[in-house]
Design a protein around this nucleic acid. Structure first.
Length: 805
RNA sequence: GCCUAGGUGGCGGAACUGGUAUACGCACAGGUUUCAAAAACCUGCGAUCGCAAGGUCAUGAGGGUUCAAAUCCCUCCCUAGGCACCA
């Protein structure tokens, strides 16, 4: 008798699966429906951590289950290989980003293979290779062609000391992470994708997705549709107008001043008329030192300055009102200016209080408040202080006011265009050439890819440009139009561009002629189920949806949404309940666990830990439970491996439990409730052991099959010990008998006044009369009743009877 | 401040549509086995009163609805994740 030794069997089966190409997905398989199962591809940061395992392990349980349910499953894997850490490593450790990245990929591939997941490695994608990113560039050109890629000045975090652009991540409390000097905003020419053109569709199509409701809500909020009106406020003694967006046009009569964002263009146009130029400029300068988040986080104290010398006219009341500047108004949202109605908006109210500005109520519920106004009123009511519209309900007055003020109705979105320019080396070059004669010229398709050149110096250049700008060989190029001297764009693309379409590439990852062959796209896409972290609820998922819709419009794909179903895994914290990090020293290394318990135990423990989307602190001893369980399974099957002509039958109750377990495990995997599926298997094993009876070969094989998605190596070993020569993972999932799942008897609960007093076994179909009789005959019930008459009897068929006295 | 989840034994967590709260596992305690330890196996394990039978109390706190509430409603407290003062 051998002991369960995962080390002996796991690598053996991993190699066998690879050799036999068990998990390589054919583009079509006879009689089988294609099923595209996808996990979010990892960034090659160095080591696979337990969080990766938590994402990939249980997701693979699902993939294997689907395969056994008769689907032709494709489960691909790859690496999201461009990004900031590689460039940081280059600067810090003098190692080329390419080398660093490829080293990490090599190490992580080895770790990934040790998990024994059913990946189709033949479809591997590495986004930093030209054969991948040329299609990034190709997509850029398509977007450019359709007017959806454009260039404009946009702010970037700027460290004046390092003379470099910083990512948000590199700004720590408003300071540069390297040199600690204060970060400011610098306006530079950058490329953007016009995702806002798709706002409506991105919002509407959420309806058709099987996604977690909270993820949909977050996307809806991010897109942020609001219906309102645009109203022009003429500037006094000028032809200029200040455009304002409002959802509460009914409160226009109460707009007692305007507030402009510090970056509002009008401040430049009218700077000559501003009397307190110094104070205004100082305020604008200060605002540049705040990140948008900081500006918006200052909830209580409002700052601002009046632009003295310029005023505007309220287009409804025709009254002259002052113009203020404050950073709680954001340039990038709406029109960058608001009409302030302190009586009916909380923020305006706080601002008006701070600077003693007039507060004029125009909508009241009941009668006009007397004396000082204590808070803003947001509800509905009737108009007051509004001239001819007085006494009209505000929602009726709204349209009249828009009309009278010369405004027009408008739908506004919070969503902003997607800024894809990165002033960095380690990314896909943007395929654009600037010619002094021809202007902006896209690189012709035939010249793709624009290969990222190998350079040696990754330190910032000092002008805010990418380190690529230092490579004369790269920059200087002949204009594709006129042949004259021209220069290449030196910014690279946001890595989110790479990950916004990678799921399509898996359908045909080796294709050299196109992004992917149409036939193959049709065979596999859209993704049936996508599994990954909740940290991607907005950006990655929204960008992927945008790309898909764009490709749909170009008739390059035939589906509108990339991921039909979505599931998130939770975050595993360190044993101390804190986020895992190397500096805290609370990182759980999956390699150690695999070494000690085997991959099967690790993945099964991750399944068993708790609800999949919850996560939580890592329990260092908990894994022993499933490890023991697998050892017991090993012993059970090995001990009583019977001959194939064994005709023994299980006892009735055990047979019933088998069928119930088949049902439960299948349904739970389908619902991503891996924890209760594992528990059901444990209950079944406990019962088998309790009975101490030998199992029939059929029962043994059913048990192994149920275990196969969770502990694939162990299951394969036991399966083939039975004399089977084909992989268990291509076997059919066992069926259950609906009749055997049903119970004929149950424990009737007997309650008195809602308290449980007794139980009695009864047939499932027992009627109320019978149940009542049964209950009232019980001694314990008689004692409780003690001659009192039941007032009321509640009977829940198949469950309980409650006697109220 | 806003949005979204959550809060159940010593711990991770179960609990269908409101119907046996604490499944399954960890830890712990006692036992079997052993020269011994480990492993394995068996038993016990929410709190409290009781010799026991059994009772009473417990799902963040407080109220409510109901024959019956972890589950539904209201108020409050705490934790996590997200955020964009969005006009």
């Amino acid at each position: 008798m051998s002991f369960y030794n995962p080390k002996k069997i796991e690598s053996k089966w991993q190699k066998w699966w690879e050799k036999k190409r068990i998990f390589q997905a054919e583009d079509s398989a006879r009689g089988k429906e294609n099923f595209y199962h996808l996990v979010m591809f990892p960034y090659p940061s160095g080591d696979l951590h337990i969080g990766h395992w938590y994402n990939f392990g249980p997701a693979d349980v699902y993939a294997r289950y689907k395969r056994m349910r008769g689907f032709n499953v494709m489960s691909p894997i790859g690496f999201d290989a461009f990004g900031l850490p590689a460039e940081n490593a280059a600067i810090k450790r003098k190692i080329h980003p390419q080398k660093w990245t490829m080293q990490n990929i090599k190490a992580m591939t080895k770790q990934l293979k040790s998990m024994g997941n059913s990946y189709d490695w033949s479809r591997l994608i590495i986004t930093c290779l030209p054969e991948y990113y040329q299609w990034n560039q190709w997509l850029f050109l398509k977007l450019y062609e359709k007017g959806l890629a454009y260039r404009k000045k946009a702010p970037a975090n700027w460290c004046p000391s390092c003379k470099t652009v910083l990512a948000n991540e590199q700004v720590i409390e408003g300071k540069c992470e390297r040199c600690d000097s204060e970060v400011t905003q610098k306006e530079i020419e950058q490329w953007l994708f016009k995702i806002t053109d798709y706002a409506e569709r991105l919002l509407d199509d959420l309806e058709m997705l099987d996604w977690p409701e909270r993820t949909k809500i977050m996307q809806r909020n991010w897109i942020g549709r609001s219906e309102g009106a645009e109203i022009d406020f003429p500037v006094t003694d000028s032809n200029l107008k200040i455009k304002v967006f409002t959802t509460r046009a009914d409160t226009l009569p109460g707009a007692t001043y305007l507030v402009l964002a510090p970056e509002h263009e009008l401040l430049n146009l009218l700077s000559a008329r501003i009397l307190n130029k110094n104070a205004v400029n100082e305020y604008i300068e200060k605002a540049k030192h705040k990140s948008e988040l900081e500006r918006l986080a200052e909830t209580k104290i409002k700052t601002g300055v009046e632009a003295k010398g310029i005023t505007a006219i309220n287009p409804y009341t025709k009254k002259e009102i002052p113009i203020w500047i404050s950073d709680y108004v954001i340039g990038g949202y709406g029109t960058g200016a608001i009409m302030a109605v302190p009586a009916h908006d909380e923020r305006d109210f706080a601002f008006a209080k701070e600077f003693s500005l007039p507060i004029l109520p125009v909508v009241v519920d009941g009668k006009l408040p007397e004396g000082e106004i204590k808070e803003a009123y947001f509800g509905d009511g009737v108009m007051v202080n509004s001239g001819e519209l007085d006494n009209l309900p505000n929602h009726i007055a709204k349209d009249r006011i828009i009309e009278l003020a010369g405004g027009k109705k408008k739908i506004n979105y919070k969503l902003r265009d997607w800024l894809i320019s990165r002033q960095r080396y380690w990314g896909a070059p943007i395929p654009i050439i600037y010619c002094s004669l021809c202007g902006t010229v896209p690189v012709p398709e035939k010249d793709l890819p624009v290969v990222l050149p190998k350079i040696k110096d990754f330190n910032p250049e000092g002008t805010g440009k990418s380190p690529l700008a230092k490579s004369k060989k790269f920059v200087n190029v002949a204009c594709p139009k006129c042949g004259g001297a021209a220069e290449r764009e030196t910014d690279t693309m946001d890595t989110f561009v790479d990950s916004s379409w990678y799921f399509i590439r898996y359908a045909d990852s080796q294709n050299k002629e196109s992004l992917a062959e149409e036939k193959k796209i049709k065979a596999w896409l859209p993704v049936k189920i996508y599994v990954g972290g909740a940290e991607h609820t907005v950006l990655h998922l929204l960008y992927s949806r945008f790309f898909t819709k764009f490709l749909y419009d170009q008739e390059l794909v035939n589906f509108k949404e990339p991921f039909l179903a979505l599931r998130h895994q939770g975050i595993i914290l360190g044993p101390d309940g804190q986020k895992m990090s190397k500096s805290r020293g609370n990182v759980v290394d999956p390699d150690d666990l695999v070494e000690k318990f085997g991959a099967d135990s690790v993945r099964m423990h991750l399944c068993f830990m708790g609800e999949y989307h919850h996560g939580g602190p890592w329990n260092p001893t908990g894994i022993l439970g499933v490890h023991r369980f697998l050892g017991r399974v090993w012993k059970l099957i090995n001990d009583q491996r019977p001959t194939t002509n064994d005709q023994r039958q299980e006892d009735k109750n055990l047979e019933k439990l088998f069928h119930q377990t088949i049902k439960k495990v299948g349904e739970d995997i389908e619902a991503f409730k891996f924890n209760t599926a594992v528990s059901a298997l444990m209950i079944l094993l406990n019962e088998i052991e309790k009975q101490k009876s030998h199992l029939s070969p059929a029962a043994c094989q059913i048990f192994i099959k149920l275990l196969a998605p969770f502990a694939p190596h162990l299951a394969e070993e036991l399966w083939q010990k039975f004399g089977n020569e084909t992989s268990i993972h291509l076997e059919k999932w066992p069926e259950y008998d609906e009749k055997l799942v049903m119970e004929e008897e149950f424990e009737l609960l007997i309650q008195i006044n809602g308290k449980l007093r007794d139980k009695v076994v009864a047939p499932k179909t027992i009627s109320q009369e019978e149940a009542e009789k049964l209950a009232l005959d019980r001694e314990r019930v008689q004692d409780q009743l003690s001659k009192k008459k039941p007032k009321k009897v509640i009977f829940v068929p198949g469950r309980l009877i409650n006697i109220v006295i």
